[in-house]
Design a protein around this nucleic acid. Structure first.
Lengths: 260, 260
DNA sequence: CGCATCCTTGATTTCATTCAAGGATTGTGG
DNA sequence: CCACAATCCTTGAATGAAATCAAGGATGCG
C-alpha cells in the first residue's frame, strides 16, 4: 500500500522484497482528510506513524498572536512523525493542503519490524537523517538567502522531492500552495512573495499557473537559488566507497542527473 | 568520561547504571581542538560519533560566496552527528568556538550497544528527536520572529540547554560568541545584532560583558522572545500518562521550573 | 450568478543592511 | 610590563529591502 514510501526508501537504501512486503503488511488502517484540516495537533501524544499515501500536507508552528511558520512539507511517502519513540509528543501541527490519504502504522509494529530486519531499521534511520538534513537546509535557506533565492530554492526542493517519488513530469508538478503558504514557509510577506514570483516568471525561470509549476530550465533555477540537492538523498552505504573521497563531486552527482 | 552526555540522556530518559557504564566504556579516544578550527568538514564520511566533553562548537553551512549560516550549537553532552548510520556523509561543517575536547566512539560500537540495551537505544532516539525539534524551532525562529525576539529566543535556548548539563549558574553562563556569530545564527547583520543587544541591555533583560551572559529575570526574557522550552526536552515515556492529556500544561511545566 | 478566496498593483512606512570610521578589548612579542 | 596589532564592539548616516496599507481584479466554488 505505501508504495511511495517503499519507493523512496528503496531508492536511497535498497530494500529487499521481503522488507517491502513486511512494510506493506504493517499498515493497519487508512484515513482520509479533506483539504485544510489539522491532521495532528501540536502537543498531541502520537502512538502511530502516519504515512502519506496521497495528497500534500505541511507541518507548522504557530505563535499565540497568529504568526505561523511552515516547517515542513509532507508528500506521498513521507512520515508525519519520527518512527522511533512511542508515544511521542509532537511539537508541531500537521495540516492537509489538499485532500490526503494516510496509512497508519502502529508504533510498536514499526519498532518490531526494525528489530527483525536490519534493512528496515537502516531505511528508517536514513529517512530520518534526510528529514533532519532538510530541516537544517530550511534554517539556512531562511536565514541566509535573499528573498528571490529562498523562493527559488524552495521550488527546486519541492520539484526534486516530487520527482523522487514519481509525482512530477519531466519539468512540472502541481503546487497546491497559496502565496501566503509560500510566504509562511520562507519568512516573507504575501505581497513580497507575489512580486518575487513575478520576477521569476519574467526571468523565464518558472511558470506557475493554476497550481501547476513548471521549471523549463532546472539548471538555471538551481543556480539562481544556489540549490544543491545532495542533502535530499543520503547514499546507501555500499555506494559510499565510490563517493566519499570526492564529496564535492558526489554533491554534484546527486544534484544533477535526477533532473538533467 | 562523557559525563555531560550521560547526564543529559539520564535527565530526559532515565539510564540504568549498567547503561551508563556501557556508554563510558565505549569511548575509544579523546581529541583536542583549539578555538576556531574546523572539526568536521562538510561532505566528510564519518565513521565515529564525536561527543563534546568540554568547550563549545557550532555546526554551519556556507555558500560559495562566503555567506555563512550557523545551524546548530554543540555543547558538552551533544553529538556532532547522528549516531545511527555509518559511515555517513555530513552535510554541514563543525567548528570549535572555544578549545574543545571530544570523545570519539566507533559507530559500530554505538550500534551494538543500542542492540544490546533497549535503554541506550531509546536514549539516543530521544536525543535525536530533541535535536530535530531544535532544528525545527530554529527554522521558525528565523522565519517568523522579529530581530529582537530572535536574539532573545536564542539566548533563552542557550541558557536552558547549558543549565540542563549543569554549565550555567542560577542566572548566568559564558557565551563565547561574537556578534557576528549571533548574526550568522539568526540571519541578521552584525551591526543590527549590536543594536538589538543594546536594546535588550537597556530594557534590563540581559547583561552581556566579556562573554558572560546574565539573564536576571528569565520569565521576562522568555516572554519577550515567545520562548517555550518544551521542545528542548522530550518526556520519558513513563511520564507520558501524566502529561499527555494536557499538553499545554506540560509545555509550561517543562519551560519554567528548570529556571524558576 | 454571486460570494469568497486568492492574486495583483501602487504608495508608503518600517526595518534592516551597508558603508564608514572611531573606540575598546584582547592577546602577543619585545 | 608596556606597546602594538588584531579583532571585536560601537555609533552615525545613507541606502535598500521588505512589510504594511489599501484597493481593484481574477478565479474558482456553491
Amino acid at each position: 500500500m505505501p508504495q511511495h514510501l517503499i519507493r523512496k526508501l528503496d531508492h536511497c537504501v535498497g530494500l529487499s522484497g521481503d522488507d517491502q512486503d513486511t512494510l506493506t503488511r504493517l499498515v493497519r488502517d487508512v484515513a482520509w482528510f479533506s483539504a485544510d484540516r489539522d491532521m495532528i495537533d501540536e502537543g498531541a501524544a502520537v502512538r502511530q506513524v502516519s504515512v502519506i499515501l496521497e495528497g500534500r500536507a505541511c507541518g507548522y508552528k504557530q505563535l499565540e498572536d497568529g504568526r505561523r511558520q511552515i516547517v515542513a512539507y509532507l508528500f506521498p511517502g513521507d512520515l508525519c512523525s519520527t518512527p522511533f519513540v512511542f508515544p511521542t509528543i509532537i511539537n508541531y501541527s500537521v495540516r492537509s493542503l489538499t485532500s490526503v490519504r494516510v496509512a497508519r502504522i502502529e508504533g510498536q509494529d514499526i519498532l518490531s519490524a526494525m528489530q527483525r530486519s536490519a534493512g528496515i531499521a537502516r531505511a528508517f534511520w536514513l529517512d530520518t537523517l534526510a528529514t533532519a538534513a532538510i530541516q537544517r537546509e530550511w534554517t539556512a535557506n531562511v536565514g541566509l538567502r535573499t528573498a528571490r533565492e529562498r523562493i527559488a530554492h524552495l521550488l527546486c526542493e519541492i520539484m526534486t522531492r516530487l520527482r523522487a517519488v514519481g509525482l512530477a513530469d519531466r519539468d512540472s508538478c502541481t503546487l497546491p500552495l497559496t502565496q501566503e503558504d509560500i510566504g509562511e514557509t520562507v519568512g516573507l510577506s504575501t505581497v513580497h512573495v507575489n512580486r518575487i514570483l513575478q520576477d521569476l516568471r519574467a526571468s523565464g525561470l518558472i511558470t506557475l499557473k493554476r497550481q501547476q509549476l513548471t521549471i523549463p530550465d532546472f539548471a538555471a533555477l538551481r543556480s539562481a537559488a544556489h540549490f544543491d540537492g545532495s542533502y535530499l538523498c543520503h547514499p546507501r552505504p555500499d555506494l559510499d566507497r565510490k563517493y566519499a573521497p570526492v564529496p564535492q563531486q558526489f554533491a554534484t552527482a546527486m544534484a544533477s542527473p535526477a533532473l538533467s
